[in-house]
Simulated scan of single mutants.
Amino acid sequence: MNELKAFTPRRLKIALLGVPLTLALIYYSVIASDRYVSEATVALQRASNDGSSIPGAALLLAGLNPPSREDTLYLKQYIHSLGLLQKLETQLNLRAHFSERRLDLPVRLSPKASQEDFLEYYRQRVEVTLDDLSSTLTLRVQGFDASFAQQLNQAILDDSERFVNELSHKLAREKLQFAEGELKLAAERLQSAKTQVLEFQAKNRFLDPIVQARASGLVTAELQSQITKTEAELRSLQAFLNEDAFQVRALKAQVDALKAQFEIERSRATGIGDDRGKGKGNRKSDRLGELAVDFKGLELQAEFALDGYKLALAAVENARIDATRKLKTLSVIEPATLPETAAYPRRLYSLVTLLVAGFLLYAVARLVLATIREHQD
């Protein structure tokens, strides 16, 4: 009971309000170091790809350009990466700035901090916010000096632009390497198709069997017309002359010759006829129909290989242009600002919050003590 009497309202106020507020006032007025915030806003923009207008080029090189939002997320991760921190440490000596002895311990980096602790501290001092609507990045960088905060912010922006360019050029080089490989294969297919066409022409001694087949068809049609005409003349003579007449025998011989030549031309064109070896016209190499079909297939393969080669060549040129130009740009919407007033610590806000918390704690303590005394009585 005597111990409860020691917790008087005055002592509670001193313990829960007076002491914390006094310590906070001493800390924020004497010990706490000002932290300045430099802010910048950037956005990624991708250059227009004229190569996509090339027919089929987009299909050949599809899937190698990541969306702009993904690029922005990559950049956000890079800003908080250990690799960038090591570059900034080399350029600006961040560890020395954030571990100066004049700074207060709660926000000071230990000079003996490990690499992991240093990275965690850096991430607390560099805030990156992504706007999902506009896909812009807002970079807020803290420093114990206004000019250093701006310098650090600008260094991050410069290295971020290099990262974006290297990433896009790496993708472009991969596109170029892939396109050159496809061009090599297309050239080999085209050369093979040309070789097959030349070998076919040399073997069969025809420059173009299709044209030859058409010509043979015209000859066959002409022979058919002559046979019909000659037979008509023969029947006309047979009407008033004997079979032994000179004119009749001559026309019969002419009809037989025309029919024999017609069969030769037909067998050459279609491969149908007497295969007993009577004359060169019955050899398979002289069957123009088969040769024309085979040659047409080889010709289509050569045309397809040529189209593929043209497509691959256009894709290589497009990829070579992409590999040398600036594909993506880090557009600075708001450059790194030079702060005039310290953003942290927020002294008034922290003191008011502490005061409100102290009053709440004081009220709870008074209620608990009153309840205990009531039960003891």
Rank of each mutant, 00 (worst) to 15 (best):
V197Y: 08
R101K: 07
A43P: 06
L185E: 11
L157W: 02
N165G: 07
R366P: 01
L234P: 00
Q254S: 13
I227K: 01
F240I: 14
D34P: 08
K5C: 04
L137P: 01
R276T: 10
K280G: 09
Q261I: 08
S81M: 08
A257P: 01
Q376W: 14
E199K: 12
Q201N: 10
V368L: 12
R46S: 09
I321D: 09
L139S: 01
F359G: 04
A187H: 02
L369Y: 00
A319M: 10
T371S: 15
R276P: 00
A213K: 05
L105T: 13
K252P: 00
R102A: 11
G271C: 09
I26K: 06
R108Q: 03
R11S: 11
L137W: 04
V107E: 08
D159K: 12
E116F: 09
L133Q: 14
A193T: 04
Q254V: 03
L198Y: 03
A215E: 15
I321V: 15
L298A: 05
L59W: 07
D275Y: 11
E340Y: 01
A239R: 12
D71H: 07
A343M: 09
G217R: 04
R320K: 12
I31R: 06
G51L: 04
D34I: 05
A215V: 15
A257F: 09
D104E: 11
A47Q: 14
V126W: 01
Y309P: 04
V141A: 01
F200D: 02
L21M: 15
F178D: 02
A343F: 05
P345W: 05
L251H: 00
I54A: 09
L258P: 02
V368A: 12
K203H: 15
D322I: 02
S168D: 13
S236L: 10
V164Q: 00
L82K: 13
A6Q: 11
E340R: 12
A292H: 00
E265G: 03
A24D: 00
S48Q: 13
N165Q: 15
Q226P: 03
Y78E: 09
L311Y: 05
R173S: 11
T337A: 04
V368C: 05
V197H: 06
L130K: 06
L291R: 05
L298M: 03
R347I: 12
L354N: 04
A363M: 13
E161H: 08
I372C: 01
D208Q: 04
K310Y: 08
R266L: 11
I26A: 13
A187L: 09
S350W: 01
L61V: 01
A32S: 12
N93F: 03
R173C: 08
Q212F: 00
A357Y: 10
D286C: 06
A250Y: 15
G271R: 05
